[in-house]
Amino acid sequence: MPQDNIAIVEKQFPNDKFLPEVVRLLDEGYTVTLRLKGYSMRPFLENNRDKALLVKARDIKKGDPVLAEISPGHYVLHRIVDISGGTVTLLGDGNLTVEKCRTEDVKGSVTGFYRKGRDVMDRTDGMKWRIYSYVWTRLRPVRRYLLAFYRRIWMKVFGGAK
C-alpha cells in the first residue's frame, strides 16, 4: 500500500522532560537520533540543524562526544577532555569552560552526526571526524578568537544557522 499521504510531524519538548526519556530508551538498548539544540558544539555542529545518533554509553574515553547529566535534569552533549578516577571533564567544542560529572552520569555515546541536512552520517570513528577532532582540540588556546571570528564574520558573510 502506498504511503504518500503520511504526514511527518516534528514536536519539540523541553530538555528536562525529553532527555530523561531518551536516557531511558538508551538504557533499554535502543539507538536514538537527537536533533541538536544549543551552540556548544559550534562551529561544526549547529543548533536545530544537525542530529546526533546516540547509543548507551560504554567504554568511554577521552575525545568521545557524549550525552551527560552534569546536574540533576541538566544534560549536555559535549566532548570528553579528561577522565580522572570517577570524574569526567567535558568541553563543548564551542565552549571555553569545562563542565564535570561522574562516570555514571555519562548516559549516551555519539556514534555519528547527520550534518547540514545530509542523509549520510559522519561517523565519530571515521577519518573525517578524527581529523577534525585532532585539529580542533589542539586549537583550544586560540579557540576564543576562532569562535568570535565564526560568529561575528563567518556567519554574517556566509549565512547559515543563527
Score class of each variant (00 low, 15 high):
residue 1 M to Y: 02
residue 4 D to M: 13
residue 4 D to V: 05
residue 7 A to H: 04
residue 10 E to V: 13
residue 11 K to I: 14
residue 11 K to Q: 15
residue 11 K to W: 11
residue 15 N to A: 15
residue 18 F to M: 14
residue 19 L to T: 08
residue 19 L to C: 10
residue 19 L to H: 03
residue 20 P to F: 07
residue 21 E to A: 04
residue 22 V to Q: 10
residue 23 V to K: 04
residue 23 V to M: 01
residue 24 R to A: 06
residue 26 L to V: 10
residue 26 L to N: 03
residue 26 L to E: 03
residue 31 T to D: 11
residue 31 T to K: 12
residue 32 V to D: 07
residue 33 T to M: 07
residue 34 L to S: 05
residue 34 L to M: 13
residue 36 L to S: 01
residue 42 R to M: 12
residue 42 R to Q: 11
residue 44 F to C: 09
residue 47 N to Q: 01
residue 48 N to Q: 14
residue 49 R to T: 08
residue 50 D to I: 04
residue 52 A to L: 04
residue 53 L to N: 04
residue 54 L to S: 11
residue 54 L to Y: 03
residue 55 V to N: 08
residue 56 K to S: 07
residue 60 I to R: 02
residue 61 K to D: 15
residue 71 S to M: 08
residue 72 P to C: 11
residue 73 G to M: 09
residue 78 H to W: 04
residue 78 H to Y: 03
residue 79 R to L: 03
residue 80 I to G: 04
residue 81 V to H: 00
residue 82 D to Y: 03
residue 84 S to M: 13
residue 85 G to C: 04
residue 86 G to F: 13
residue 87 T to A: 05
residue 88 V to Q: 10
residue 90 L to W: 04
residue 90 L to I: 02
residue 91 L to A: 00
residue 93 D to V: 01
residue 95 N to T: 07
residue 96 L to N: 07
residue 96 L to C: 06
residue 101 C to V: 00
residue 101 C to Y: 00
residue 104 E to D: 08
residue 106 V to K: 14
residue 106 V to H: 04
residue 108 G to E: 10
residue 113 F to E: 03
residue 114 Y to S: 13
residue 115 R to P: 03
residue 116 K to W: 12
residue 117 G to H: 01
residue 117 G to M: 12
residue 118 R to T: 02
residue 120 V to Q: 08
residue 124 T to Y: 01
residue 125 D to N: 15
residue 126 G to K: 01
residue 131 I to S: 02
residue 132 Y to C: 05
residue 132 Y to E: 13
residue 132 Y to R: 09
residue 133 S to H: 06
residue 133 S to K: 12
residue 135 V to G: 06
residue 135 V to M: 07
residue 135 V to L: 13
residue 137 T to L: 12
residue 137 T to A: 14
residue 137 T to Q: 15
residue 138 R to N: 14
residue 141 P to T: 00
residue 141 P to K: 03
residue 141 P to M: 06
residue 142 V to E: 06
residue 143 R to V: 14
residue 143 R to D: 13
residue 144 R to V: 14
residue 144 R to F: 15
residue 146 L to G: 09
residue 147 L to S: 00
residue 147 L to K: 01
residue 150 Y to Q: 11
residue 151 R to A: 10
residue 153 I to S: 00
residue 155 M to F: 00
residue 155 M to R: 11
residue 156 K to R: 15
residue 159 G to W: 07
residue 160 G to K: 02
residue 162 K to P: 06
residue 162 K to V: 10
